[in-house]
Simulated assay, not measured.
Amino acid sequence: MVKILLTGARGMVGKNILNHDKAKNYDFMNPSSKDLNLLDKSEVDKFLSEHKPDFVIHAAGVVGGIQANINNPVKFFVENMLMGINLITAARESGVQQLMNMGSSCMYPRNIEHALSEDLILKGELEPTNEGYALAKVAAARLCEYISREHVNLEYKTIIPCNLYGKYDKFDETNSHMIPAVIRKFVVAVKEKSEFVDIWGDGEARREFMYAEDLADFVFYAIDNFTVMPQNLNVGLGHDYSINDYYKTIAKITGYKGTFKHDLTKPVGMKRKLIDNTLLTEFGWKSKTDLSQGVAKTYQYFLDEIVK
């Protein structure tokens, strides 16, 4: 049985991977940050030399929404950079043959209206609101490229998911991403019978959100086809929605009947961030969950596990 080291197993992506039906076909090692401190290179070296995984999935990271990135740029930059470099170089040194690095669509240049293809990395200015996080992700992806180029027997590749949401997401007010934050906002608004809810900006910015369970499905597809997978590969829907569209969909599912009020003083990030899924389609994989289905499942998870 293939032995896989999964970092970030307590996060949304990691939990969705471990709870996927195909996870039972592999021997997963999923240490917590207490068991394996990725910020300590010597500790990472020791862990890999002792446990000798066949495959590494690097899904750990310091993550958060726009405000969290703005408030903590040093943490987002330094810790994500160190985790990526420490793990990837330690894997190379211990002879791990295959490594899947989780990138982010924030690696792409800002203010590009068309879909973002993999060859656009480092072809323009990054979005300032999450630049530190993006730089760390770009560095890890480039490191994987360099290692694969220097060592033809090592396959170190990066997948670049679009924005994600779903079960095991963060729903707290300060660190959550947009969809879980809006679900919480509407649940409170329904309970308090609020006449309106705020939307940051004019709501015309467009985003691509994929249900996290679909990403887990992709991970297992990619493990089975890793040798032919491109060096860098976008994983998303290939289409996007406006922020206003997301609010309308979530309002309908949560039963909110009020109106929206746009707060033009708030940061909104990039105007559009849609990834090009041409290579993904050629690779033979497609997401399964549409927006309404995914939001409904996430809302139910919030009610069952968070509100209780």
Rank of each mutant, 00 (worst) to 15 (best):
M102H: 09
I306M: 09
L264W: 12
N234R: 10
T158M: 06
I183W: 02
E118Y: 07
N277S: 09
S105I: 07
F47L: 01
L6N: 06
V235E: 09
K271A: 09
E208Q: 14
V187R: 03
F186K: 02
K137C: 10
L274A: 08
Y256Q: 01
N71I: 08
L6Y: 00
L6K: 03
V2G: 06
P73I: 07
A139R: 07
E173R: 09
I243H: 05
N71S: 12
D198I: 14
K257L: 13
V295Y: 04
N175T: 15
K288A: 01
F218S: 07
I66K: 00
D214R: 08
K15H: 05
L99T: 06
I112M: 08
A205G: 03
A59C: 10
H239E: 14
T227V: 14
K288E: 00
I243M: 10
S104G: 05
N153W: 07
Q67P: 04
N72P: 11
E173W: 03
I183G: 00
K24F: 02
F171V: 07
P230Y: 00
L36F: 11
S49A: 04
K22G: 04
D263I: 09
K261W: 13
S42A: 13
L82T: 10
H262W: 04
L135I: 14
M178K: 00
M12E: 06
A68S: 15
A90E: 03
F226N: 09
L82C: 06
A189L: 12
E127V: 12
L6S: 07
Y26G: 02
I147R: 08
R272Y: 11
S49K: 15
A139D: 03
V182R: 04
S148Y: 12
H58Y: 07
V268R: 03
I253V: 14
A251K: 11
N244A: 10
D245K: 08
D169R: 07
L303T: 04
G8A: 04
V62H: 02
V13C: 05
I160W: 02
K273W: 05
E131M: 15
H51M: 03
N163C: 13
D290M: 09
